[in-house]
Design a protein around this nucleic acid. Sequence first.
DNA 1: CGGCCTTATTCAATCGTTTCAATGTTCAAT
DNA 2: ATTGAACATTGAAACGATTGAATAAGGCCG
Lengths: 372, 372
Amino acid sequence: MMQSENPVLVKRHSGKNQTITMRDVANSSGFSPATVSIVLNNAPLARYIAPTTKKRIEEVAKKLGYRPNAMARFLRSKRSHSVGVMFFDITDPFCTPVLRGIENALYQSSYVPIFADAHNQRNRFERYLEMLLEHHVEALIVVANWLFVDIQLLADLSKRNITAATIGWEMPGNDVSSVMVDNEAGGRLALEHLHHLGHRKIAFIRGPKMLIDSAPRWKGIQKFAHSAGLEIDPALVLQLPDSFDPNSGFEGGYRFTEELLQRKKRFTALMAFDDLTALGAIRALTKAGVKVPENCSVVGFDDVPLSSLSAPSLTTVRQPLEAMGNLAVNIVMEGVNAGLEKRDWSISRHKMNPELVIRDSTQAAVLSSSDD
Amino acid sequence: MMQSENPVLVKRHSGKNQTITMRDVANSSGFSPATVSIVLNNAPLARYIAPTTKKRIEEVAKKLGYRPNAMARFLRSKRSHSVGVMFFDITDPFCTPVLRGIENALYQSSYVPIFADAHNQRNRFERYLEMLLEHHVEALIVVANWLFVDIQLLADLSKRNITAATIGWEMPGNDVSSVMVDNEAGGRLALEHLHHLGHRKIAFIRGPKMLIDSAPRWKGIQKFAHSAGLEIDPALVLQLPDSFDPNSGFEGGYRFTEELLQRKKRFTALMAFDDLTALGAIRALTKAGVKVPENCSVVGFDDVPLSSLSAPSLTTVRQPLEAMGNLAVNIVMEGVNAGLEKRDWSISRHKMNPELVIRDSTQAAVLSSSDD
DNA sequence: CGGCCTTATTCAATCGTTTCAATGTTCAAT
DNA sequence: ATTGAACATTGAAACGATTGAATAAGGCCG
């Protein structure tokens, strides 16, 4: 454990614990627990309860400071009013805005998020899943941009009728809803921007194969390049290795940019797989005396919170992270309600539109006479 | 809601839901529910249970995939195995490492964190508190570096015997444990570093009055200055205004540094209240043509994750954020156990030691002949 | 052989809600 | 006057675990 300057002990603590139950409200108001329950939950039967009764009960409940016991309630009604929110690595700056989006949407529905972080470890993921099931979460949201988990998850969940949604990743098969950014469109957006600025010699640092985002982004790039007649020089294309460390993008961007510079092939712009990679690239460029954006434009992807704070601030393709969190909640809530009303419902897969955010790391290419 | 390219509807979904209860394990193993419970929880009475019986029951439970129902268990045993974790603004980069520390420690104890984010709003804080109480969290951890909440919290909690701890903030009064960094030591550390590097003309951007960290940091600075015979020029000291936006530090650092530069008083180093402020300051300096660290050293405070990624990377005073989260969990767990065993126990207040992290934003002062 | 301790297991009450079915009313319609 | 809705409320059985008290069967001792 951490050293810590003599902890100051302060005050004795003990105490009596008197929780107010529904029975108390019933006794105190002169009605039965059943009536109280019906009134306080505004259950269907509440239609028949006399307004004066309702008022009385509500008054008493408030005066006594009655708080329903979520556990007891669950036991009877099967509703825990909680949702599991699993991250594969909360340390990834990508996650914070998503978390906020999820939290906010759940809050609107008076659901409570149970937070789980797999630390990129499979067994930890499984253990958490177990814990979430024990706590009978009504739904599960999984945030990841890659995944080792297969059918196991799905089996356990759909057997128990728990609606799930993934963010930033799609389950193979058609059993779990998902919310992703349209990576292909994003890739196109970024390259289009550089192209419009007049860049023709562009270097690329592609994402790791493991990440589901990598391929479509590259596809978007290629498609645009093709349609615009832009040639992509294979000597200016590198691909990040697979890694579990969310900060490895920075490191990778740095090293690969050094590598690119050593190749002595001129490029006036660099497109990085994501923001962290871009930041690493900028660091390497700056160190090598290449000014950004004067001598080389750099564009990232994601628009994580630090991108606007970096120097120079980063031009990037924004994922609507908060909105994605929101949407995932709406999806699972829809599933929960469907289950409640014994309706059938359908899995859905969403691709959100990315958005180009132009900041200081890109500028128009300087015209050069010598090509190559 | 967000636009999203035609969501693809995929597959029908419905299903049967067969949960395995303890009764199932009992029937299937030929013993009674009581025995099963005793065995599976390794309760005191388990001492008397025949080893063969234990084995049998455990086998059956595993084979059936029995999962205890946390809610039902709570109802009888009063233990929810959950802890409320309240943030005042998860968007603050300060929070992520703390969250990880908390999550990790709870995981070790098989507790589940219920996540709450007050968004800096008092009513939201109160509503969440309500929800957490309804879910009967066994303890509460509050992460904040400032606060509007008063005795209300304390009253509700100690009445219900819920141990609480705050991180980054101390409750006035002596009823809630707390974990903080030793701000005074941190302030000293930072200034000491600049002083050792030979800086004598140092500008300061102090923290907002509202923040509990501001005063002690400044005190540490003053004390060191006094002991080292360093003079602090009041014309080089500014104080950030109060604000709820966690990113306002950057903005403030930027503006105040511009302001400082306009004053035409030379300074060779700048000490910012926190990392974001420092980053804002660096931005302003760079824009004004003052190179960091060549012409001006900058030091921050906190060591939030982006500080190592900025350009130049930031010299700063590290708060052991993850360890602080950890410690807070240990504290409340101790409280929970004490309550369980009807022991008395004591509130504690910790001040963790900060640590100087030297990176690229500081370097030795160039000797100048002209002073003033 | 009867009493007592130890071992092994079970009974049954309980936690705080929800909800189905039941019990009375009242009142309009046959 | 009888019926049957609609209204207003309640009794009591769940829900799935935990746990103190009870039961029962050996084993040991005097």
